[in-house]
Each structure stands twice: as C-alpha cells, then as structure tokens.
C-alpha cells in the first residue's frame, strides 16, 4: 500500500513515513506495539474489540457462577470455580491489553454498566440446568477457542500475547464441558435428557457466536486488512461444525440441525439455515438475560465501591505516613 505524498509541508511527509512503517509492519506480519504510530481507526477498532472481549469474559462468569453452589460433586465444584476464576483472569489480561491503548479500567467498566459497551450475546442466555455447564464448555468455549487461536497472531502485540496466555488456559475449559456431557450421556434417563435438552438450546446460539454471515459483517473487511481479525466469520463457523460433528458422535447427542449433512465434494459438513432473528433480538437487548447480566455486574461494582475507596484511602495514608517519617528522619539527621 503506497501512501500519497503531498508535495509541500514536511509535516505531511513525516506522517506518511510513519503510516508507511505501520503498513510495512502489518504486511510483514510483524507486531504493532503500544506507542507505535497507528491509524486512529485501528486504535479505535482495537479498543472496541479487546474491551468487548474482556467484557465477554467478565459477563460470561455469571451464567456459570450460577451453578457453583449447586455443583453435584466436590470435584465438579472445584473445577467450575477454577474455570470461572480463569474467566475473571482472562478479563483482566484483556483489560490490561486495552489499557495500553489508553482506555482505563474505570472507563471500560463504566461503559459496560451503562449498557454502552457490547459483549458476546451468548452470555445473555440462562443456565437453567447443570447440563448447561457442559454445553457452555463444549460448545461456547469450543467456539471461542476457534476464534481465539488465530488471534494469538493478531497484529497488536499486547492483544496477541494476552490471547496466547488465554488459549493456554482455555484448553481445559472445553474438555471439562465435554466430560460433563459425557458423564451425563452415560447416566440415567433424566441425565441424558438433561444433556440433549441443553445441547438443543445452546447449539444455534454457539454457531451465531462467529457473527453474521460475511456479507452482513461491516467491520470485518477492515479488521482483516489490519490483521486484527484473521479469518472470516463463515470460515470459522464451518471449521467449528466440522470439529463438532465427530465429537457429538462420541457423546451420543444429536445436533439439532435436521439439515446438517456431509458434503462429499467439499468434504465439509453443510449447515442448515441459521435463523438470525433471535440473534438480532438478543443483540438489541431483548434477550432472556440481558438486563440481569448488567444488573449483576452493576450491583457488584456499586456495592464494592466502599471497599475500593477504603483500599485507596489506606494506600494514600500509608504513603503520607512514610513521607512524614522520612522527613522526620532527615530533619533529625540534619539537626
């Protein structure tokens, strides 16, 4: 990509040189680091994408935290706590990465609570049964992993590095979900029914996690050019289904798509038609749990305010105390 050089001012030439450097870095598949020059659109896209990802991790804690106190064995309880804890950690890594671009945690949290920031709409669904812990791990985290592994090579350094760390930790998330379902499908009739019912509810929303079809996705093209996004929505969705089908066979669950069939020519699994109406409804705030998710986050944040302020006040007092102790020592030494 060549930059246009305006003939007169040397200032314009400098900007072009920096932009050229940026473009060269992108093209060479190198990394943009904090404080490198970057187009404003790139910075804005990144802050949006990274913070949305962070918010998703944080909101995503809720549907699973719902079952911690009722987990049906101590081992499952421990695993679920560790998983949700990981999600808090992932949110924190991502907030850190977004912060390198100037967005503060307070601002990002404020935007989320005010309903101004987006997060993955998959978390606006409820978790009425234990089997949902399985489906979330297998289907939702499975889909997330498909999205995330390519992001380990995202062009923005801190984002890519956060994603590498997240991918390492995420590997257990999908396995534990799969094993929950495996156990259920090998269990009583009620357990099998619980598992199948859960898969029926989560399958289509999980496919929708990859976003609208490529034709309907306005931000995609630019994000791909900037190598923040590395594969198209439809491409990733297809890869995901190809992986799921054999796994579903191992589990013995039926994927709720009567039109799902193997295409001998392409050697891929062809999907039935996705109904995007529900997706748009949930995205527009009319999903089952949208209000509840934000309210819980807001409540935790507001109820925690006095604690955060107490800690900050204590830190300030300690600093003042140390300063005055230092001054006193200096004065004593001088006298």
């Amino acid at each position: 990509m060549t930059s246009t050089i305006t003939p007169d001012t040397s200032a314009a030439v400098d900007i072009s040189v920096e932009e050229q450097q940026f473009n060269d870095l992108i093209e060479a598949d190198s990394r943009i680091e904090p404080r490198d020059w970057m187009p404003e659109g790139y910075r804005k896209s990144l802050v949006r994408q990274i913070s949305q990802h962070a918010h998703s991790e944080i909101i995503g804690m809720q549907p699973e935290a719902n079952w911690i106190t009722r987990a049906p064995s101590l081992k499952r309880k421990a695993i679920l706590m560790a998983k949700v804890q990981d999600e808090a950690g992932h949110g924190l890594y991502l907030y850190s990465a977004a912060q390198t671009l100037g967005a503060t945690r307070d601002d990002m949290t404020g935007a989320l609570i005010a309903g101004k920031a987006r997060y993955s709409s998959i978390f606006n669904y409820p978790t009425p049964t234990w089997a949902d812990m399985g489906s979330i791990g297998w289907l939702v985290d499975g889909a997330a992993i498909c999205n995330q592994v390519p992001l380990c090579r995202a062009s923005y350094g801190p984002y890519g590095r956060a994603m590498v760390r997240i991918c390492k930790e995420e590997s257990f998330h999908q396995r534990q979900g799969f094993e929950i379902l495996l156990e259920l499908m090998a269990g009583t009739d009620e357990q099998r029914q619980m598992a199948q019912d859960s898969v029926n509810r989560w399958y289509w929303p999980a496919l929708q996690m990859f976003g609208p079809p490529d034709d309907d996705s306005p931000n995609s093209a630019q994000s791909m050019a900037w190598k923040i996004k590395r594969h198209s929505n439809d491409e990733l969705r297809q890869r995901f289904v190809n992986m799921l089908v054999p796994q579903a066979a191992v589990l013995g669950v039926t994927l709720p798509d009567p039109d799902l069939h193997f295409n001998e020519e392409t050697q891929q699994w062809d999907l039935g038609e996705i109904d995007w109406t529900e997706f748009h409804e949930v995205l527009a705030g009319r999903g089952p749990n949208n209000a509840q998710r934000l309210q819980r986050r807001r409540d935790a944040h507001e109820e925690g305010r006095w604690v955060r302020e107490a800690a900050a006040a204590y830190a300030a007092k300690e600093t003042a105390r140390k300063q005055s102790a230092l001054t006193t020592t200096t004065e004593m030494a001088a006298s």
């Binding site: 809720q62 911690i68 106190t69 706590m81 949700v84 804890q85 924190l92 935790a300 305010r305 604690v307």
Partner: peptide, 22 residues
C-alpha cells in the same frame, strides 16, 4: 466463598477469593 465469585468488589478479589475457596 463460592457465592462471592462474580460479585466481589473488584475483579482481582474474585480471583483472590476464588483461590481461597479452591
């Protein structure tokens, strides 16, 4: 402590209380 997860005063405390609980 399990009941505190996703409700702690700061995300870092969600992680800390989670650790104690585990």
């Amino acid at each position: 402590l399990g009941a505190w997860i996703s409700r702690a005063p700061e995300l870092e405390e969600d992680v800390a209380l989670g650790n104690v609980g585990l």
